[in-house]
Computed example of a mutant assay.
Amino acid sequence: MARKCFYSFYYNEDNWRVSTVKNIGAIEGQPLVSANEFEEIKRKGDKAVADWIAGNMAGRSTVIVLIGTNTASRKWVKHEIKYAFDSGKALLGIHIHRLLDRSGNTSAKGANPFGTFTVGTDKKPLTNWAKTYDPAGVDSKGVYDTIKNNIESWVEEAIRLRG
């Protein structure tokens, strides 16, 4: 049975790439909302967004941050990472900048979104528990194949690290 995971990402820049990863089908992700649906949630305020995130993370073992060019700087991605860690969920990141977008373009590699977080009373780096992967491949298809062939083991490794 496929693991249930939550995808965290920057919708405006990466929704096409995220759909590509989601369609691999190796893990079960939450339904992706449209830009209009998310804007409707945002209009209700920060609490509504936080409640939506909490509701969609419920019952998920792992949060997968799909890392595009600007993902690490996004307010709600940061919130999702913190909420996931505080909720005991496993975390991992996958760079998706070399997958093609709707227009057939790749983008610049983004920063590690876990790199600015420290956790616990001893302020250890979150990167101790949250690995990031930069999939191999000379083109979008190669990157896709690397993700497809490894995403399940990456999720299992994240769960093991979170222990």
Rank of each mutant, 00 (worst) to 15 (best):
Y11W: 10
E13Q: 14
R17T: 12
S19H: 12
I24N: 09
Q30L: 01
V33G: 04
A35P: 04
E37C: 04
E37W: 07
E40S: 14
I41V: 14
K42W: 09
K44V: 08
D46N: 13
K47H: 07
K47W: 04
K47S: 09
I53S: 03
I53Q: 01
A58Q: 12
R60N: 14
V65K: 09
L66S: 02
L66D: 07
L66K: 01
I67S: 04
T71H: 03
S73I: 15
E80Y: 02
I81A: 14
Y83M: 06
F85Q: 09
F85P: 05
S87N: 14
K89F: 07
A90S: 15
L91A: 03
H95G: 02
R102M: 03
N105C: 12
S107D: 15
A111I: 11
F114C: 11
G115E: 15
T116Q: 13
T118L: 07
K123S: 15
K123A: 10
W129H: 10
A130Q: 08
A130K: 00
K131Q: 13
T132D: 10
Y133V: 01
Y133P: 05
Y133L: 00
D139I: 00
S140C: 07
D145L: 04
I147H: 05
N150G: 05
E156D: 15
E156T: 09
R160N: 08
